[in-house]
């Protein structure tokens, strides 16, 4: 199987960050498939450049997420932080492509799941830990700031 298309870490595997990233990725992938199916169902719409470009951007984004999950230390907060943001972008783009009412309803469910799934670290806390690690600052030192 091709490295760039092999399945990402399944939701539920590994530590909290890995599980969270797996869940976010799974939702983004569902949204992508739903949108592609919806566009494909309309021969004319599938031949319009806007939908094609958006589809390609989602596809590229999923490939980056998949690679990061497969190749980076899963315990590093970088993974969940990146995948969460990229997954939101994919689902948001997918939402724009859907026209079928049932598909839109399903997309709403995906969006709600995405927003309702709590990350192991809040985005701000993740940024603090990732930034401090890169700057060689003890993340547990107090006071946290200056």
């Amino acid at each position: 199987m091709n490295e760039t298309t092999r399945p990402a870490v399944p939701a539920g595997a590994g530590g909290p960050g890995e599980r969270y990233a797996g869940t976010m990725f799974g939702l983004a992938e569902q949204a992508y498939e739903l949108a592609v199916r919806d566009v494909k169902g309309d021969a004319k719409r599938s031949r319009l450049p806007g939908g094609q470009f958006t589809t390609a951007r989602m596809r590229a984004s999923l490939a980056t997420m998949r690679a990061l999950m497969a190749r980076h230390d899963p315990g590093d907060p970088v993974v969940a932080h990146y995948v969460a943001e990229a997954a939101q972008e994919v689902v948001s783009k997918a939402f724009e492509l859907v026209t079928d009412p049932l598909a839109a309803e399903e997309m709403s469910r995906i969006w709600r799941s995405l927003k309702a799934t709590a990350p192991p670290l809040s985005p701000d806390h993740a940024r603090e830990r990732i930034g401090k690690a890169a700057l060689l600052i003890d993340p547990d030192a107090t006071p946290r700031w200056l």
Binding site: L68, V78, H81, A126, R127, G131, A133, L135, I137
Partner: peptide, 15 residues
């Protein structure tokens, strides 16, 4: 500074 460096490190790891 930490927040922006975090975004740099995150994007670099993804790339």
């Amino acid at each position: 500074v930490q927040f922006r460096v975090a975004e740099m490190a995150t994007r670099l790891a993804a790339a």
